[in-house]
Design a protein around this nucleic acid. Structure first.
Length: 142
DNA sequence: GCCAACGTTGGC
DNA sequence: GCCAACGTTGGC
């Protein structure tokens, strides 16, 4: 079963464009227990939204988990994990935080309930709704 | 084991 | 740039 995720990064640090350019990226630097648990639950083939935090405040692209959790190479304590991701396709229209908040059907989204959660899970309905808002509905593959 | 102090994140 | 929310640390 494919799981759906939303992953935040500050575009000044590491943005969608950086990932596209690289072709594959290591999603490291997560230092939050809840977010880390989400990383550990990811499986190859799961899909995730790339969300720009701080500057942008919008989901901009879809990526795929290309490697399951492994120890974060930058973490000396050995406590934290990273995953690998590959870009799948950009969103036709970025979906802003504001737009997500305005949707009653998205009110229960984990990341809306807890804004500081940098890696959050989405259910299939939420995923479908956001992709629809982006103009990347199920009928319109990349 | 509790809780105050501190650091970090992210929306505004 | 500021501040609220949240997590973590460290003294007791």
């Amino acid at each position: 079963m494919t799981q759906y995720w939303l992953m935040k990064s500050e575009p000044d640090e590491y943005g969608w464009a950086d990932l596209v350019k690289a072709g594959e990226g290591v999603w490291d630097g997560v230092r939050n227990a809840q977010a880390s648990n989400n990383l550990k639950a990811m499986q190859v083939g799961d899909l995730a939204l790339f969300y720009h935090s701080r500057t942008g405040l919008e989901a901009v692209g879809v990526m795929e988990i290309s490697a399951a959790a492994f120890p974060d190479p930058k973490d000396k304590t050995g406590r934290w994990v990273a995953v690998k991701v590959k870009p799948v396709h950009p969103l036709n229209r970025p979906v802003t935080l504001k737009a997500m908040k305005a949707r009653p059907s998205l009110a229960d989204m984990a990341m809306l309930r807890q804004s500081r959660l940098s890696v959050a899970q989405l259910n299939a309905d939420e995923w479908g709704e956001i992709l629809k808002m982006a103009g990347n509905g199920s009928a319109a593959p990349a």
